[in-house]
Design a protein around this nucleic acid. Sequence first.
DNA 1: TGACCGGGGTGTGCGTTGGACACTATGGCT
DNA 2: AGCCATAGTGTCCAACGCACACCCCGGTCA
Lengths: 229, 229
Amino acid sequence: MSHTYEYPRPALTVDCVVFGQDEEDLKVLLIRRGVEPYAGRWALPGGFVRMEESLDAAARRELEEEAGIRPGHMEQLYTFGDPGRDPRGRVVTVAYFALVKLSDHTLHAATDAREAAWFSVWDAPKLAFDHADVLATALQRLKGKVRYQPIGFELLPPKFTLTQLQRLYEVILERPLDKRNFRKKILAMDLLEELDEVEQDVSHRAARLYRFDHKKYKQLEKAGFNFEL
Amino acid sequence: MSHTYEYPRPALTVDCVVFGQDEEDLKVLLIRRGVEPYAGRWALPGGFVRMEESLDAAARRELEEEAGIRPGHMEQLYTFGDPGRDPRGRVVTVAYFALVKLSDHTLHAATDAREAAWFSVWDAPKLAFDHADVLATALQRLKGKVRYQPIGFELLPPKFTLTQLQRLYEVILERPLDKRNFRKKILAMDLLEELDEVEQDVSHRAARLYRFDHKKYKQLEKAGFNFEL
DNA sequence: TGACCGGGGTGTGCGTTGGACACTATGGCT
DNA sequence: AGCCATAGTGTCCAACGCACACCCCGGTCA
């Protein structure tokens, strides 16, 4: 079955930049391509948009299919449509930006017979198509957004220590933060719930665990509060 | 001549939200549709993307064709692709966001046999398709961006008074600003060139004219300077 | 069992910035 | 000459950002 149109149309795909965080650095999810073009190269997960699904739905579907991932945060990033970005012809791609807790998706084996893996964003392999541009755009967005919206918590486990949180920001922003100032500021927002638990299995004094209070944030947001770090 | 593909493809369009400013309020450029669907309704300028042109180029071309406008600032806004947003079938649109100096495009008559006009953004007519959503998204972007990037100057004539500049920000941000604080802050950035000219034809004390120094801004930006108002 | 090691957790002081606030200056008009 | 409409200008206070160093605790190992 084929489809005919009066005028030519570009093909439409979605591609996802999925970030995760692993103690020391920021990771991005890549899939190794099995077919030409760029067979064997690493690329962002993605695929063609179906006629009956929204763009968001397409992005979620591809992530589920290619990596078994259901991200905690997802938003549209940018649409890349230069003629020539795909050697097969005109392909326009709507890029998405997603955050997942690595703890939920540690050893996700290659689903769908494809090889998938986490790479450090600072040390990623050469990517297919213009995916290096897409990745760079996503990183810029993450860096810009993390300071004004509490999306960073989507990268951490539900219960985390303040040091983990600080590390997260340091890794994303690529600069050291002052421990006391960081804690003062984040606690002053009153968005963290202090739990009666401490971390386990550490060979030093255990740190207290906290949980991000999504509900309280929603309320404060409506009241005109602005998260800022 | 027709075009056949193995899988169905959405049609791809671009739509532009063009803002201008006119003393007292913020305007948006609309075009009256001549054909179904939504014949007679006002809509954002836009049209189909051609196979050999980039998305940016398509947006610029449509603006030129439909309104004779070449905007001072243009950037991609968001891509709208819900199935059902266009009654003709699946049409995905990449929305753009543009700023023009109204002084350059005052009485642009209906080019292309279409009717085009500026409307106050707070008092726009009912729009075709999901263009009201697009407009709302663009407004949000403008409000957010104007404080952190010096794009507001693209809405003013090359030479302007500090009061004009302040009005511009007040209109966009929808709140009054303090005259002395505003002047202090904007002049402290040292991005305005003070001219040896004053405004003409006013029936009161004439204000000094200033010009935005794009070159200096580029330099400072490279050096890590951040515009902020 | 005591010393050490590795991170956890805490407060102050200073310089800068944001924001409130009111009067004089100037030029055109009548 | 007086009026009117807008231009232009400085101070003070509170809040915030940022630099900075020490004791605490629990586990490990000699």
